[in-house]
Amino acid sequence: MASPILFFGLLALFFLAASASDPSPLQDFCVADTNSPVLLNGLACKDPKTVEANDFSSSGLHIAGNTSNPEGLSVASAQIPGLNTLGISLLRFDYAPGGINAPHIHPRATEILTVLEGSLEVGFVTSTPPNRLITKVLQKGDVFVFPIGLIHYQRNVGKTSAAAIAAASSQNPGFIPIANSVFGSKPDIPSDVLAKAFQVDKNVVNHIRSKF
């Protein structure tokens, strides 16, 4: 039987390794200094003595965005310098009737979305196996979670405009739109690769690519 010292030593190493992948900030806050040329894991910090309440506040997310675009979608980010290094971000989405937030991935964040107005169909696809679609229609006040790294989307299924607020567990979640990334990359992914992947003719691939 292993000694208690060895057991607790291994246990301590386990927790150390578990926490090392996502270290906590080493200060109360790090308000972003947007004028600094230094790029860290986040932005450089302002002098704490110059920090004020406005660094931790934002306004304007009550204003509906312009959805007159092909996707019928507007995205507005809450610009809050005080969120720098704290591992969270905030967005407002506005959807025209029939508008979509097309399938995409956030590689560094889980997202939680709250519907402010309207009816939204939301969903994400589980990893293999078996690529199952988890989907639900949300109404005003409903909340839905999109797990980190999974393909997900939203669609306005109502007859009026819809709006939602989303928070993500990273100050820089990343955004990978599936269709744009696959068919609009520079340089192009070879057509024969995409033709085999989607099991279609190269002409179909080239036609879709022309849209991006």
Rank of each mutant, 00 (worst) to 15 (best):
S3W: 04
F8H: 09
L10I: 12
A12Y: 07
F14H: 08
L16V: 09
A17N: 13
P23E: 11
L26M: 11
L40M: 08
G42H: 02
D47G: 06
P48R: 00
T50K: 10
N54T: 14
P70N: 11
L73C: 06
L73Q: 05
S77I: 14
S77E: 15
Q79L: 15
N84F: 03
N84P: 01
L86A: 08
G87F: 00
G87L: 01
S89I: 03
S89P: 06
D94G: 05
Y95Q: 00
Y95D: 01
A96K: 01
A102M: 07
A102S: 12
A102W: 01
E111K: 05
E111C: 11
L113D: 15
T114V: 15
V115N: 12
V125A: 12
T126V: 03
S127M: 11
T128C: 12
R132V: 15
K136S: 10
K136G: 09
L138P: 04
Q139V: 13
V143W: 02
G149F: 05
G149R: 01
H152Y: 12
N156D: 07
V157A: 09
G158R: 01
A162D: 02
A167Q: 12
I178M: 03
V182G: 03
V182E: 00
V182D: 01
P187A: 05
I189V: 10
P190M: 07
P190S: 07
D192I: 09
D192N: 11
A195I: 03
A197F: 04
F198Y: 05
K202F: 07
S210I: 05
K211A: 15
